[in-house]
Nucleic acid binder design. Structure first.
Lengths: 179, 179
DNA sequence: CTCCCTGCAAAGCCTTTGCACAGTT
DNA sequence: AACTGTGCAAAGGCTTTGCAGGGAG
């Protein structure tokens, strides 16, 4: 679980003149019970709470995740999806990073502890306090290479991996609107 | 300078049935003459070209940088600034990464060749072709720590580093609208 | 009683898209 | 001729903000 409890959250909020509201507590609770590796967008968090009958307005969601990210409680992820995702900022080990295919936007995760070590070293050197580190590796996936990337990749090719990807958005630029 | 010339760009575009237009060439040229470490947003690129009397419409800018990013020519950066920045994707060495203060949004760069090595290793393992890798380290800067982060940081505190930062946006959440 | 917080609706910002015209091949 | 690329204006998606009412200290 997380190192944060409702009480320590309250203490930290109060120290700055802020308050622990039911909404903030519920949001923290959701993230604490989210399986490792999962992350939610503001909208997803909104829907998840709504399903549980604990509706919190979208504005409050946005304000809360932003606040908690700034406090170092949440980690703000910017994948290649056009919107941010949040997850608990687990203190240190088991950091995961992301590998994204710039052709099909498919994202896969991987772990590598050295990344964190390098980041820590850099922070120490300059007197910074590390909150989180994220490595994003932009790649061409095996499929696209097989299709002849870079020179002979058909301009309207769509990676098969992208089709089964829950996060897929647009694949074409301006050249291949099919239909 | 970059490994890309107008000619090699043309070749690669043509191979996919695309064209080298004056606009695309000018955009490539801007990035090639940008000092290392600089990066431009779409809007900044637009203004820079406009100042030189070479106006290119914003839509074309957006379409071009997206295209070039997908081709691996440009590198798309997502810093903590609400919009994307682009820079030349220099083949390999001299990669730099970013350290961002989550309190003041100030961004600083640092170099570390091991990051690239780790990314390459990960790509090889899974048959991916590396295009670019970016490590973003979220931190609290020395100033904020000195001010008492996390518990006693004044709620309306603004990092002095942020003031001189050309990219600063908003600093308060919902608590400190001054005026 | 003051100040913080929520919810709603409206606004905002960056980015994408439809369409007609122009330039290449 | 067929198709790609540009510019313009409009639309779009995510996020932020103004404001009134409610609640905590």
């Amino acid at each position: 679980m997380s190192s944060y409890t409702a009480n320590s959250l309250k203490a930290e909020l109060n120290a700055r003149g802020w308050r622990l509201t039911p909404q903030r507590e519920k949001i923290l609770h959701v993230f604490q019970n989210l399986p490792r590796g999962n992350h939610l967008s503001a909208e997803e968090l909104f829907e998840l709470l709504e399903e549980r009958g604990e509706t919190i307005s979208l504005s409050t969601i946005y304000r809360s995740v932003k606040l908690m990210s700034r406090m170092g409680i949440l980690r703000e992820l910017e994948l290649a999806e056009g919107h941010k995702h949040y997850e608990l900022n687990h203190p240190h080990p088991n950091h995961h990073h992301h590998m994204v295919c710039i052709q099909c936007n498919k994202t896969t995760e991987f772990k590598n502890d050295s990344i964190l070590k390098h980041s820590l070293k850099q922070c120490d050197k300059e007197g910074y306090q590390l909150i989180d580190c994220q490595l994003t590796v932009m790649t061409i996936c095996p499929e696209a290479i097989r299709m002849g990337w870079p020179s002979s990749l058909p301009s309207n090719w769509i990676c098969t991996r992208a089709i089964s990807d829950e996060h897929n958005h647009e694949f074409s630029d301006s050249e291949g609107e099919s239909e």
